[in-house]
Design a protein around this nucleic acid. Structure first.
Lengths: 141, 141
DNA sequence: TATATACTTGACTAAATTAGTCAGGTTTAT
DNA sequence: ATAAACCTGACTAATTTAGTCAAGTATATA
């Protein structure tokens, strides 16, 4: 089980953005340089973040991205959701009709994966972008 | 982020095994049929479980597998560890020397992934095979 | 208004991982 | 003897990941 780069990058980029957000739009180029993430890849990621209204774009020179909401209101769930980085533990949900509907001996562990999903999502619900920025500034002070 | 089939199968198979463990060794063929998992794949999985001393094999006719310890003493961590289904959130740990050692602005989110790892592992530490078997028998009664 | 900066979009691809299959074994109860 | 069951290693198709590449559009500013 792993968290993929796309999800990590999205969070890293947004923390970076949030720290400079007060003043001007932040360009992907800057984020790319600071965080060491490919610019082209960042563009893909921000396209998704924009569609989910987590960031807003400002075109043209001196353009870039700004947060659509306050950092406190952006939860990790929102970010990871936006880039399709969901927690998937159950296969049987997809093919809902077959097996795993309580009758058969299959999916002895159905409840377990549900619990796990909740457990993880709970973590993501609690953490806001603001929490992460604070964690970081505290550490450097 | 997803839990792969190997991990799910390992847990499913062991819950199945644990339920019949009292009497005789349980053959992979039976587990394969009951849980709908390919026999060949189960053999790979059980090879790993055996190496980590979670199960013991009994060869020959009427052979199969038995738990090495009591179900209460087998935690989910142990199972998932055995089949290499660890929680991997951080890439930067691998290439330890580069970046992410506190100096650079990289890895603003380092602590976050650590926290997440702990959060998930905590869940796996608490759950024992016995818990899962009980959950299941309770449900059917 | 020319131009550089920066966002926008879609197609493409190499590498890695996953989820197995396949083909051969060896062991042992009956 | 023989069938049931474990044991091992090599192989592979499909999927996912982590990008790259190309060709734009929008706009601040000199």
């Amino acid at each position: 089980m792993k968290l993929t780069s796309k999800g990590r990058y999205a969070v890293m980029a947004l923390v970076d953005l949030a720290r400079f957000n007060n003043l001007n739009p932040v360009s992907l180029r800057d984020i790319s340089l600071r965080q060491g993430i490919s610019l082209d890849y960042l563009e893909q990621i921000f396209s998704k973040l924009r569609k989910k209204e987590i960031v807003q774009s400002v075109r043209g020179t001196q353009g870039g991205y700004v947060l659509s909401k306050k950092a406190k209101e952006i939860k990790l769930t929102n970010i990871l959701d936006a880039v399709d980085e969901k927690v998937k533990t159950l296969q049987c949900k997809k093919e809902s009709k077959k097996g795993c509907n309580g009758r058969s001996t299959k999916c002895l562990t159905h409840n377990l994966w549900d619990e796990l999903e909740n457990h993880i999502n709970n973590f993501f619900e609690k953490k806001s972008l603001d929490d992460l920025v604070k964690d970081n500034t505290e550490k450097r002070v």
